[in-house]
Simulated scan of single mutants.
Amino acid sequence: MPELLLGLGLGLGAGVTPGALLTLIITASLRGGFRAGMRLACVPLLSDLPVVVLAVTAMGAMPGAVVRVLSVVGGLYVVYLGVTTVREARTAAPPGSGGTAPSSRGELLRGVVVNVLNPHPWLFWIAVGAPLFVSAWHRAPTSALAFVGGFYLVLVGSKIALALAIGAGRHRLTPRGYRLVLGATGVLLAGVGLVLTLRGVVPVPPPPCCAGGRT
């Protein structure tokens, strides 16, 4: 199931790519341990629903040609993220520990607000996630659900794993190790972006059973 593989790959890239939420997770894990980081790692499950619904609803009303164009644009955007991540990995370092950890409720609220106001989830679902979901849904709804499930499974799971690694041994994550992880993620993002771009340029035809559906 290619949609599931794309969801897993994109989820891993989004899960460990530098950003505001990832920085909050790392900082919370350094300050408050695994539980503090895990709470923030689950923020996308709380804040992404309106983003996904709005993006998929908008895409569902668009013709197939627009979906393919956005797939190409989204693929190129993911390639750009991959290249940018590889560049940032050369000098990236996890934030230092210190300070007083905020309350659990205030910490979670802060994470939700940061994620909702972050343009990256909106850009991803408008340019990448929604076109893939809509296209897969018209071929086989289970494939679309597998894409979303795989994406959030790895997106949240990778953030939880990072919080666990930092919380269990807060001094084990060296700058060099962090850079290697980011560099590998950047390469993965770029590769997935190329796949998405090619799928937009040469769209996969729907199976015969769905030929009467949207084109």
Rank of each mutant, 00 (worst) to 15 (best):
G11P: 00
T185P: 12
Y80N: 02
V73L: 15
H171E: 14
P18E: 03
H120N: 10
I25P: 01
L108R: 02
A140H: 13
G74T: 06
G13E: 08
P121L: 08
A28Q: 09
A146H: 04
G129S: 14
L196A: 02
G111A: 10
G183R: 13
V43A: 12
G157L: 01
P18G: 00
V79I: 15
L5D: 01
T185W: 13
L45A: 12
Y152N: 09
R176K: 12
V181T: 14
S143T: 03
P50H: 12
R68H: 12
S135T: 15
M59L: 14
L132H: 09
V202A: 04
S143I: 00
I166V: 15
T100C: 02
A61M: 13
P208A: 01
L117S: 11
L123T: 00
I166G: 04
L109R: 13
L109H: 08
A61G: 13
A136T: 04
G111E: 05
L22M: 12
T91D: 11
V128H: 02
T84F: 15
A140F: 11
R31I: 00
E3D: 07
A101E: 05
L10F: 09
A140R: 13
V201R: 03
F133E: 04
T100V: 11
A14N: 06
L24Y: 10
S143L: 11
V69T: 14
V66A: 03
C209K: 03
A163M: 05
L180H: 15
G60C: 03
L40P: 02
G200R: 05
L123N: 07
L40G: 07
R179G: 15
R172W: 15
G129W: 14
F147S: 00
C210K: 04
V134K: 06
R31M: 04
L5T: 04
P95M: 03
S104W: 15
G177Q: 10
V195N: 01
A89P: 06
A93C: 05
G7S: 06
V16R: 00
Y152Q: 08
T84V: 06
R90I: 01
F34P: 13
F34R: 05
P175K: 02
G213L: 07
A146C: 08
P203Q: 03
T85M: 15
S97H: 01
A168Q: 12
D48H: 01
V56L: 00
G74S: 04
T84W: 15
E107H: 10
A14M: 12
L10T: 07
G7K: 05
V86H: 11
V56S: 01
V116N: 06
A146P: 10
G15W: 01
A161V: 13
P205Y: 07
L145K: 00
G74A: 02
G33P: 02
R170W: 01
P94H: 10
R172F: 14
G74P: 11
F151T: 05
R179V: 14
A146W: 09
G167W: 04
S47C: 06
C210G: 04
P205A: 08
V116H: 08
L24T: 08
G64W: 10
R214M: 09
G37V: 00
R110S: 07
P207G: 11
N118Y: 07
A93N: 04
L117K: 05
